[in-house]
Amino acid sequence: MKIEVLYPELSNLYGDYYNAKYLAMCIPDSQTVFTSNNDKPAFLSEKVDIICMGSMSERNQEFAIKHLMPYKDKIKELVDNGTFFLATGNSFEIFGDHIEDDGKKIECLGAIDFYSKRQMNDRRNCFFLGDFQTEKGEDIKIVGHKSQFSFSHGKATEKPFISVEGGFGINLDSKNEGVHYKNFFGTYILGPFIMLNPQFLKYLLRSMNLNDSLLYEEEINNAYADRLKRLQREGTEFLMGAE
């Protein structure tokens, strides 16, 4: 079982690296490859089971796009072949068609059919509560926090990864959050997404045909249950000011 973390220097802005770290802690005998932006990605030369990326500043996002563009076709092939991807924060935008920013168009990997629009003078923050429905019809509550300068649009955003119950969606007109295509999971929820959502992690492990028991399962479930209870409380304020 191989986990590849792409560009940990660039994409660990909000503690996102802990997603891969905890995932590895829960999978005995797993191997984690940290691919620095000076290195060639491991997925080019060997089988990687899951690829993780995390939040980054907008400037660093453009560096990451530049690094990955030469491997665009291979990445599309991996996405289409059902390799698992977990991209948190704005990292999932890299897999779309392009990013628009104040008249500038930044070409992206084009692996999934959507695009993003940035507005650096308009940052939005919210707490998030939503529903992820598995293929078997099981509902998993998803919790988290979003803080972003950009939103995404286009075909792939119409099929939800998560249905929004509280907070805003993948764009301000949408009740969907994130992108779910085959085994690609991308969400604007930031940072330690997996640490916040142990039920989703269990689903992910089962989907990868792995044992779904978690390290410190009682602790992580208690923290999740408490946060869920607070977010489900009547009158919860999901939207937060930025300045």
Binding site: G15, L190, G191, E237
Partner: peptide, 12 residues
């Protein structure tokens, strides 16, 4: 206090 707070910082 009914407010909630983000915990991303705990993992940074």
């Amino acid at each position: 206090d009914p407010n909630i707070e983000t915990i991303t910082w705990l993992y940074e």
